[in-house]
Design a protein around this nucleic acid. Structure first.
Lengths: 154, 154
DNA sequence: CGTGAAATATGTATCGT
DNA sequence: ACGATACATATTTCACG
């Protein structure tokens, strides 16, 4: 079931760096004929290795943008409540990432907003009004020094 | 200089969700002829609005994967030292994201590693051995509940 | 920006290993 | 089971209006 050979990993590495490669280019890179290569890409997509292909847009080109790292402390460690919270996070487009962590903090959120006002509104809507959120701490970032989506395939 | 019209934003929104759309499909979506649409995509790429197009690979499909949120406290708030630190971060593939934040914490890192051993080695190499790093705190995540790369274009 | 035509690429069928 | 060749379909891309 889970057996990616060297060629599959090579394909994934290439496409993680640049998915605009044409299939003929990719095929040449990995040493296959275009149809054989296409079949693999299709298989990797169907089997969920490639979840999707997207364009990454440069945030700073669209005016000022604030990134927030938010640590959320919940009232109780209750699965049901966590799931509900995650649901509300998934429905909030400004929240780009959510990590469930172990320790004192329960969730870490990565939020992208235009300004403080937008962030405060978000907090009102999602955190202050949620009885299961005990408290949260915000780290404000005006500089994202690195953003890489690729995964190491050793 | 910075003047994206409704069609440009529409193109960016579409490609942020799915960059595998063919140019003809995209053209139809935004109400342009394929050549006109292609020109815009090219322009948006050349001008840096689209920084790149990538395949997103599902981490859990490649065996267990740990995400770490690392808060780094530097010794001194010195620009030169910060820049050097950022450089070392950019050269480290396991560190996927780096946010420079204001307040007590100086940097927040998002790290992806296979296991604790790999993380410890990373810490040795990058944090413990760096005299400018005063201390750091690690939040361990075994669950990434959301990961969205798209930016709001209102 | 649109139309139409040429150049490329994608996708399918079939064969061979 | 997997890859290659050849062929059909679709897309990209250029020239022109």
């Amino acid at each position: 079931m889970n057996a990616l050979d060297r060629i599959d990993r090579n394909i994934l590495m290439q496409l993680q760096q640049d998915s605009r490669l044409t299939n003929v280019q990719l095929a040449a890179q990995v040493g296959l004929s275009p149809p054989a290569c296409l079949k693999r890409v299709k298989r990797l997509t169907e089997e969920g290795y490639i979840s999707r292909q997207v364009a990454l847009v440069a945030p700073h080109k669209l005016g000022p943008m604030l990134h927030m790292v938010v640590e959320v402390f919940m009232e109780r460690d209750h699965k049901q409540l966590f799931q509900e919270f995650v649901k509300s996070i998934q429905a909030t487009p400004e929240i780009k990432q959510c990590y469930q962590v172990t320790g004192e903090v329960d969730f870490v959120l990565i939020v992208m907003v235009r300004d403080m006002e937008a962030y405060e509104k978000l907090c009102d809507r999602l955190l202050y009004s949620n009885p299961n959120v005990r408290k949260f701490r915000t780290l404000i970032s005006m500089k994202r020094d690195k953003f890489e989506t690729a995964i190491e395939l050793e």
